[in-house]
């Protein structure tokens, strides 16, 4: 039963990536104002009206891996083949292979996002559990209100406020870049310190605006679980309170939050476009934004694809761990189905 669950999740992940790739192909090729007409108009601007269609097509093929005069299915096959070889085309703006640009950027986005994710959920779950245990107390009520308020702040607003006050006005934090240019790249302490220093504000903006809703979700789940019969039976069986808190309340209250986690993964990675632009943090989102601004379609689409794949992988990993944690997963009785 569990095996079936894993196979199904894997198939789902692979199929999603495949579907997204197909979609990007379609968008690049079929939508009006796509790269072909864009490149042509660029050439027209450069060379006047004497544009050689062959030249345009050759350029398009260089950048996007698709020859515009081939039949559609050949284009599709060519596109897929080059993707499978890890070739995302060439950036028109940077004139570098897209794969190369994004390969250097991706680890940084993953770095920021995974830390944000862990902190958001760690903080949210802890706080929510505490709130549930002292339900109705002054702490509970005020924390609920604060959580709602923080959740009403868009993360980019928080980002602007942070970069404005702590970055520009007080100069306590850097306002751009991944690491200080003075440290040597590698696994040394100075490098790590600098990396965390530069990532601190982006992470803070996501965590501060994100943990509240998770805390509220955890609070609700915990209160529900605390009312379950098995908690009462466990107490009568004489289990230690911390065992009940962790193995009983914690575990059963956290499981339904996996849904929130999946959504958060997509939300955070997607948000990297805005966030990395505000902090001038060269991750995938930053390059996607550059690509958009410069109408650099290969870069834009490549970044979109990589972000999507990152999200699919993230959700896949979450799915697999969920399958490990909830024995009911796959038998149709799992909590995750309830979202």
């Amino acid at each position: 039963m569990i095996n079936k669950y894993y196979i199904e999740r894997t198939a789902q992940a692979v199929f999603t990536v495949f579907a997204v790739v197909t979609m990007t192909f379609g968008m690049i090729r079929l939508m009006p104002g796509g790269p072909v007409s864009y490149i042509r108009s660029q050439l027209v601007q450069q060379q006047g009206n004497q544009v050689d269609m062959e030249q345009v097509n050759a350029l398009v093929e260089v950048y996007t891996n698709v020859a515009p005069d081939d039949p559609l299915y050949v284009q599709y096959l060519e596109y897929m083949t080059s993707l499978l070889q890890g070739d995302l085309g060439v950036s028109m703006f940077y004139n570098d292979p897209v794969t190369m640009i994004l390969a250097s950027a991706a680890p940084w986005t993953v770095f920021v996002m995974s830390i944000s994710l862990v902190l958001t959920f760690g903080l949210g779950i802890t706080l929510g559990a505490v709130m549930a245990y002292i339900e109705g107390s002054r702490f509970d009520v005020s924390t609920t209100l604060v959580s709602i308020f923080l959740n009403s702040i868009p993360y980019y607003v928080m980002a602007i406020v942070l970069v404005y006050i702590l970055g520009y006005q007080f100069n306590w934090f850097p306002t751009g870049g991944r690491v200080s240019s003075e440290v040597a790249t590698g696994m040394n302490l100075a490098f790590l310190q600098s990396a965390f220093y530069h990532a601190a504000l982006p992470i803070a903006s996501l965590v501060i605006t994100g943990f509240g809703i998770q805390a509220l979700a955890m609070r609700g789940n915990s209160i529900r679980v605390l009312g379950e019969d098995y908690i009462r039976v466990a107490r009568l069986r004489g289990l230690a309170p911390h065992d009940i808190a962790l193995r009983y309340v914690g575990r059963n209250a956290i499981l339904p939050m996996y849904t929130g986690m999946m959504i958060a993964i997509g939300f955070m990675f997607g948000g990297s476009v805005i966030l990395e632009e505000i902090f001038a943090y060269p991750g995938i989102g930053y390059y996607m934004f550059r690509g958009i601004m410069a109408r650099d379609y290969p870069l834009m689409m490549g970044a979109f694809l990589i972000i999507t794949i990152a999200v699919v992988v993230g959700i896949y990993v979450a799915d697999l761990t969920y399958g490990k944690l909830d024995p009911r997963a796959g038998s149709g009785g799992g909590n995750r189905e309830a979202y």
């Binding site: 199929f15 990007t24 009006p32 939300f267 958009i292 972000i307 999507t308 999200v311 699919v312």
Partner: peptide, 22 residues
């Protein structure tokens, strides 16, 4: 199946791509 795929695609980048095109 269709729904699950749509759900997995990160919203903001998808919106951006569509917005840029349209």
């Amino acid at each position: 199946t269709f729904n699950d795929i749509l759900m997995t695609i990160p919203g903001l980048p998808l919106v951006i791509v569509i917005a840029v095109i349209l």
